[in-house]
Amino acid sequence: MMGNGKNELMGPLVTGYKSYILIGVLLLVSLPLILAYSTLIITSFANTIVSNPWVKFNFTFDNWIAFFRGELSTTHARIYTTGEILRMIGNTVIVAAGVTAVVLGGSATSAYAYSRMKYRWRKGSLKLLLLLHAFPGVALIVGVYTIYYYTLVKYIPPQSRTLYSFFFVILARASLEIPMSIWILKGFFDRVPWELEWSVLIDGGSRWTAFRHAVLPLVKPGIAAVAIFAFLAGWEDLIYVMIFLPPNQKTLATFIEGQLASGSLETSYLPIMAAAGTLYLLPTILFFIFTQRLLLETMSGGLKG
């Protein structure tokens, strides 16, 4: 039943000397990536910029402490308060968590409907979803901004506008993720046999009980994968956050971008910026390290029409 595909995936595809060649090639290809990331991460813990392996440096937490104190420049002048820095991290979490919640709620229910119900335009709209997924978010910005501007000016009182902009950026960013999430989750729902749901109905439950107690527990891996993708999308997003959040509301992405773009790069102390960058990358790195197998299963098992 569920998860049978997992065992098939665990066996090595290539064995013997061929596997060494394969690992060598993969290492070579990913070397630039590994170098860039390790340069960033090591620099954030170093007393100087570690741009090549021959740089001598001392290990220190000073950059991280300085970052949280808001001391970004070489002169250690306090540009932001700790509160502002925490606020900015908090904003990032709010956007990421919000996107996750909206994507999960939207895609789990629609994927269930796509998997379980028959209705007009079911096949057609499924294909349309795929098309929507291929549509770049940037290309939609003008239209989305128009909606944002008119609703904001017409219906939102000035004191609620910050709240509305958060609400809007979460909704807009989530809607970019929902089409693919529906496809992923539909594949998982398709693997849950009908009889399990009927069983709950026979046992005295409602359709909703069946969804919660028999179906959801079995599609947990899919839900987890979709949640991770959505969280990362919200956490990393730059363009939507930059356009829709008011200038005084930063996330990690817009904060770093702001530092690099405003010409303060010359005055910024780069090891401190490396700490900010590492923090920004942290969820991505952690998720991909700890959920490799889950993601592999999602991509191989979840994507079925």
């Binding site: 569920m2 009889e195 009927w198 069983s199 109905l201 026979i202 409602s206 079995l218």
Partner: peptide
Amino acid sequence: LKPNERNIGLVFQNYALYPH
């Protein structure tokens, strides 16, 4: 009436036990 209003027991061919 829905299945849950009929007071029936059903053993499915594949048993349909809740795997979790």
